[in-house]
Simulated scan of single mutants.
Amino acid sequence: MNKEMTPFEIRQHIRSGEFTGNTSGYGQGFVQGNLAIMPKEWANDFLQFCQKNPKPCPIVGMSSQPGEFMLPDLGQEIDIRSDVPKYRIYEHGILTREVADLTPFWRDDLVTFVLGCSFSFEEALIADGLEVRNITEGVNVPMYRTNIECKSAGRFSGTTVVSMRPMKAADAIRAVQICTRFPSVHGAPLHLGDPSQIGINDINTPDFGDAVTIKEGELPVFWACGVTPQVAIEQAKPEFCITHSPGHMLITDLPNSRLAVL
């Protein structure tokens, strides 16, 4: 699929089932979003969880009422049931299936949250001349569970998931400067260097996504990741919940420039 397509055109290919891959590198210039969808009786606790943990869970949009599946504030004709390449369905905190269309599973009590995604700041890094290894190698970004505790809210708690991009030290410093301008898409990195300090035992075996090459003289650079809610959902065990599959995002019509802090 042509990466130069508009977000609307990309969503049409996703909706039709023609595109089911990860969305890194697509919809350049536009905000991509992680997804968390849950029954309304869980939504207020989750909203508070996001507010207490803005680095891994920055909210860029949500449905205006339970059962609403069109999200006009985020883009033309967005139907959250079909416009993400792959979804995960959890029952009582257990991942039970991955699907490409939520329509058969949709309920009138569901509330949708769209959270900022690191794919948005990757574009800013590349524009500044920095390499983003997962894009260079054409794979999903590696993501890891850590020992960094989130702040609890109601029934939600858990540890932070991070995404990793290897860089030389000078590039990592520049990446911090660039990403600080994008707090709505995870902001500056949480950690640079030794993975074991944040509870990662094997950098070559990510918990989500794909491993990438780390070259001699490079540091692993870790950002808070929007897969964090999936860990919180596993802990809270709502009877029914939906997320995106890691790396398979909602591509919105919101320009990335709207999220930058100048």
Rank of each mutant, 00 (worst) to 15 (best):
M1V: 12
M1K: 05
K3E: 12
M5V: 10
E9I: 02
R11P: 03
G17M: 04
N22W: 06
T23W: 01
S24V: 01
G25H: 02
Q28I: 14
G29K: 01
V31R: 03
N34G: 02
L35C: 03
I37A: 09
D45K: 10
P54A: 02
K55L: 12
K55Y: 04
C57E: 00
I59G: 12
V60L: 13
Q65C: 10
L71A: 02
Q76H: 11
I78K: 00
I78W: 00
D83G: 04
D83N: 14
Y87K: 05
I89D: 08
Y90T: 01
G93Q: 10
L95P: 02
L95Y: 01
T96I: 15
E98K: 14
V99Q: 08
A100Q: 14
D101W: 04
L102V: 08
T103P: 06
T103D: 12
P104R: 12
T112L: 09
V114A: 06
L115D: 03
G116I: 00
F121R: 08
E122L: 03
A124P: 07
A124C: 11
A124F: 04
A124W: 04
A127S: 15
G129I: 14
L130A: 10
R133S: 13
T136P: 00
G138F: 06
P142A: 12
K151C: 06
T159S: 11
V161D: 04
M164W: 02
M164V: 01
R165T: 14
R165N: 12
P166A: 06
M167N: 05
A169Y: 11
I173F: 05
R174G: 04
V176R: 10
P183A: 09
P183T: 00
S184D: 15
V185R: 13
V185M: 12
H186F: 04
H186D: 10
A188D: 06
P189Q: 11
H191N: 11
G193M: 08
D194N: 15
D194C: 13
P195S: 11
N201V: 13
N204F: 12
T205F: 00
P206L: 12
D207T: 09
F208R: 02
G209C: 08
D210V: 08
V212I: 15
T213C: 10
G217C: 03
L219T: 01
P220E: 08
A224Q: 02
T228F: 08
T228H: 07
T228C: 08
P229F: 11
P229T: 07
Q230I: 03
A232R: 01
E239A: 10
C241G: 08
C241I: 00
H244S: 06
P246M: 07
M249V: 07
M249I: 06
I251L: 10
L254P: 00
L254F: 00
P255G: 02
A260E: 15
